[in-house]
């Protein structure tokens, strides 16, 4: 029995070491450094000051950036949520052949294993002023001059987010839906539920854990993003991470750390709120 326990600890040691060195300690240090002082040319100066936080919270730009990030988050959440739900619903309840369903599911997930940056860049020849959409619109005579807000705009940012992150919704919702006993749907139909009634009263409540899990992914991905906003908005929009980005350019690690701590707290608060709303743990632990 004792050797069993020893073995267990031996088995988790590598995982523990990686998490300790590359997650726990770094996060702790970010917190510590956020109270340090920054001095030009010297860099980090150990201290215990709230200056970085005060700087951050008294700067109206921070609020503007967070507002912009939250706006993106909510819009993307709504679009990916609706899209993810119906794509998963289609795959689980409308595709009858299991192999076909798995195949189509894989089609949805394959992009996850390819480069985000490449997939983002690939929108350029589509959305640009000389891109595919504008060329088509011009040639069909629908517009007189190219639509400029397709690329380097909030629209482009949202398109890229939806493109990159919808599968983070599809996968957990698909998993939750696949576990729903089909007899439950029949029982609801027996009781007189309409097609919409079945979705609303049975499928949606039973997919809640999947939706919540997907939402946590999308929130953290959008809020933590700095490259999609930078590339797709052409520098016109900022995000919460833009501040960190700028501080890092000036090697101001303490303020970047303070900024990161604030971002982390907000992300964790939202994640906790979602976990509160829906008990996702049983989904994860199973």
């Amino acid at each position: 029995m004792k050797s069993n326990r020893l073995l267990t600890y031996l088995q988790v040691t590598p995982l523990f070491l990686v998490l300790l060195l590359f997650v726990i300690v770094p996060l702790a240090l970010v917190l510590i450094v956020s109270f340090f002082r920054y001095q030009m040319l010297v860099g980090l100066v150990p201290d215990f000051t709230f200056k970085n936080y005060i700087d951050l919270l008294s700067n109206p730009t921070s609020y503007k950036l967070y507002f912009s990030t939250i706006k993106f988050t909510l819009i993307v959440l709504a679009i990916t949520g609706v899209l993810g739900f119906w794509v998963a619903y289609f795959l689980v309840f409308h595709v009858r052949n299991l192999l076909v369903a798995i195949g189509l599911f894989l089609v949805c997930t394959v992009p996850f294993w390819t480069s985000n940056i490449i997939r983002m860049i690939s929108w350029r020849p589509v959305l640009g002023t000389e891109g595919l959409i504008n060329t088509a619109l011009l040639e069909s005579g629908l517009v007189g001059e190219p639509i400029s807000w397709l690329l380097f705009s909030d629209f482009a940012v949202i398109v890229a987010y939806v493109h990159l992150f919808t599968l983070f919704m599809i996968v957990p919702i698909f998993n939750a839906m696949a576990r729903i006993d089909k007899a439950l749907l029949e029982a609801a139909v027996d009781a007189g539920a309409t097609r919409w009634g079945v979705v609303w009263n049975v499928v949606l409540p039973l997919s809640k854990t999947g939706i919540a899990l997907g939402a946590v992914f999308v929130v953290t991905l959008v809020m933590g993003d700095f490259f999609v906003v930078a590339v797709m908005s052409g520098g016109l929009s900022g995000s919460a991470t833009s501040g960190i980005f700028n501080d890092l350019q000036f090697l101001n690690y303490p303020r970047a750390a303070a900024n990161a701590v604030v971002l982390l707290i907000i992300v964790l608060l939202i994640a906790t709120a979602i976990f509160r709303l829906v008990d996702v743990r049983k989904e994860l632990v199973r």
Partner: peptide
């Protein structure tokens, strides 16, 4: 799970500082 959720940039700073 937290490692999955933490924004990559935040962790990136942490690892660099470490």
């Amino acid at each position: 799970v937290a490692s999955l959720i933490v924004p990559g940039l935040v962790l990136s700073i942490g690892i660099l500082v470490t």
